[in-house]
Design a protein around this nucleic acid. Structure first.
Length: 121
RNA sequence: AGAGGCAGGCAGGCGGCCGCUCCCCGCGCGAGCGGGGGGAGGAAAGUCCGAGCUCCGCAGGGCAGGGUGAUCCCUAACGGGGACCGCCCCGGCCGGUAACGGCCGGGCCAGGGACAGUGCCACAGAGAACAUACCGCCGAACGGGGUCCGCGAGCGCCACGGACACGGCGAACGCGGCCUCCGUGGCAAGGGUGAAAAGGCGAGGUAAGAGCUCACCGCUCCCGCCGCGAGGCGGGGGAUCCGGAAAACCCCACCCGGAGAAAGACCAAAUAGGAGGACGACUCCGCCGGCGGCGGGGCGACUCGCCAUCGGGCCGGAUAAGGGCUGCCCGUCCGACGUCCUCGGGUAGGUCGUUCGAGUCGCGUGGAAACGCGCGUCCCAGACGAAUGGCCGCCGCCCGCAAGGGAACAAAACUCGGCUUAUCGCCUGCCUCUCCUU
RNA sequence: GCGGCCGUGGUGGAGCCAGCAACACGUCUCCUUCCCAAGGAGAAGAUCGCGGGUGCGAACCCCGCCGGCCGCU
C-alpha cells in the first residue's frame, strides 16, 4: 500500500464513533478549523469530517471536505497513529486549500506539544 | 461589420505524479496486490405537476376535500407539448372629414357557466342593476296666474240729436285666442360624475323625445355552405329586455385511496420478554382537559409567537367512555384483569431492492408540428459520515503595453417524462435595424 | 424524503373574504424645569420581500421565484 493512501479503514463511518470522539476527546482550534482527537486502540489513525448545513451549497461542502481529507492524506508524518480525528471547518466562506493544510498541521502540532508537556511534567 | 430578437447546441483540451469508488481478469488461506475499463448535470437544483415501483388500506351508503377547464391532436400519463380558433395589445398599409372598418405581421391570454342561487361594485354622481332625473329639453294634456287682442249683454262718461237709428272712451265681468310664467305632467337627446350610465351611428318622426320607425354595425335564433372541431362566410327572422366580476362563494363537466426507497424483502447477535386465540372475572386500567416544551424582543417586570400529544407524577372531569374501518358521519367491529393453550416476532448489524430504461446514437419512413413506426447500433455513475479530488506543465479563450489576472450557475442519492428558476463565455441558423464597399 | 408557517416605517406588530396602511416604543421640534428624567403639544418616517396576472382598483385574490423559521420519520 502506498504511503499516501486513504482507504475506508482510515475513516470514521458510524455515528457512534463520532459521538465517542465528541464526548471523550480533546479539542484544538484556530480561526480555520476545529480538531477533536481521541485514542482508538487501532494501529492507524482515522479521520471524520463534519460540515453543517450552514455551508449552504453542496458544492462548497464537498470542496471543503476534500481539502481537509487531502491535508490529512498528504501529511502522514504529522498524524499520530492510533488516534481518531474529527475536523470541522470554521468561517467556511474564507477557507482555502492552503489555509486548511496549514491549520491542520498547526493544530496537530499543538496537540503533540500539549501531550508531551503533560507526559513529562 | 456592429446592435437587438427568436430557435438550437457546447459547458476548455492534452499530459504527468499522488489519491477515491465500482466492474472484469490474474495471484494470494487472508488483509490485499498487479493489469484493464467505467465514473456528475443541462439544469443533477427548487420539489411545482405527472408516472413507474413498493407497502398499507379497500362490506356498504352518504358528505366533504383537492385539482383541471375554448377546440383538435401528441403522449404511459400530466396542470406538459404542437397546431388552430377567439378576445386583447403593439406596429405597418389601405379606405374614410371623423368615429371607425378592412388587410398583413408580431406578441399575449387559467379562455366552461353571471336568466341555479347568495353576495360585491368604494369615492364621485341625480341615478350603479326589478335603473335614475341634478342641470336641462317640451308646453301636446290637466289646473292656475299675468299682459295683450277679439266678441258679448248691460253700466258710467263724452259726443250727437227734435226724435229714431248710429258713434267714441272707460272700468269690471263672461267666453275665446296668441304669448308667457307656475304646478301636475311628458322626455332621456345633451351637459356633468365615474372604471362602467341600460346598444353605437345616421336619417325619419315628435311638443320635446325615445328601437317609436328605418338603413348599417353589434347581439341572439334559424337555414345554407366550408371546416374533424372550436368556429368562419352568406341569407333570413327576432328582440334590441336583461353591465362587470366566477384568479368572491358557487354551479357544471372530468380526474384524484394513502404514504413514500428512511418504501419494502431477506438473513440475523447481545439484552429484555412479547404477540395471538379460548375461557372466566368486572371498576383498576384506560380516556379527556390543565399544570408543558421551544423560539423572538427587552437590563428587567414582562411581552409576542410557534409546536407536540411519547413516558411518569399531581389536580379536575366523564363514564361504555374510547379505538379500528388511513378526512368526517351513518353503520359495523374491537375493547381492559386473570388463567390456560399456541406461536415466534423485533432491535444493532448485514445483503437485496439498485440500476437495461416509456434508454443512447445513426439511417429510413409517416406527419404541418409536437411526435409515431421500422431496422441497425451501444451499455453509459451506482455511492450510503456518501466516490470525480489535490498539485504541476503545455496549448486554446477573455482583460491588460507588460508583469499578471479571469473562466459562470452549480454536484447524482430508486428511476423516468415535463415545468420553473440560476448561468461567464463561445458556436450555428433565421429575422429586424444602422454603417461601409461593390 | 414528506409537510407547514412567516416576510408591512428604525424595532415589535394590526390590517390579509379588495376601496386614503392602524397602534405602541423609538427619532425630531416646541412647551414645562436652573438642567435632566417624567409629562404635555406637534411633526417626519413605508418600493407592504421580488416579478407577472385578474380586475376600474391588489398589502389583501391567483401563479412563479427569493429569503427566513418550524415539524415528522
Amino acid at each position: 500500500m502506498s504511503l499516501f493512501a486513504y482507504p475506508k479503514s482510515a475513516r470514521l463511518l458510524r455515528r457512534r464513533e463520532f459521538d465517542r470522539v465528541f464526548k471523550a476527546g480533546g479539542s484544538w482550534k484556530d480561526g480555520d478549523l476545529v480538531v477533536y482527537c481521541l485514542q482508538n486502540d487501532l494501529p492507524q489513525a482515522r479521520l471524520g469530517i463534519v460540515i453543517g448545513r450552514k455551508v449552504k451549497r453542496a458544492v462548497d461542502r464537498n470542496r471543503i471536505k476534500r481539502w481537509i481529507r487531502e491535508a490529512f492524506r498528504l501529511h502522514p508524518e504529522a498524524v499520530p497513529p492510533g488516534v481518531d480525528l474529527v475536523v470541522l471547518p470554521r468561517n467556511a466562506p474564507s477557507l482555502t486549500w492552503a489555509r486548511a493544510e496549514r491549520s491542520l498541521l498547526k493544530l496537530l502540532g499543538a496537540r503533540a506539544r500539549d501531550l508531551a508537556r503533560r507526559g513529562t511534567p
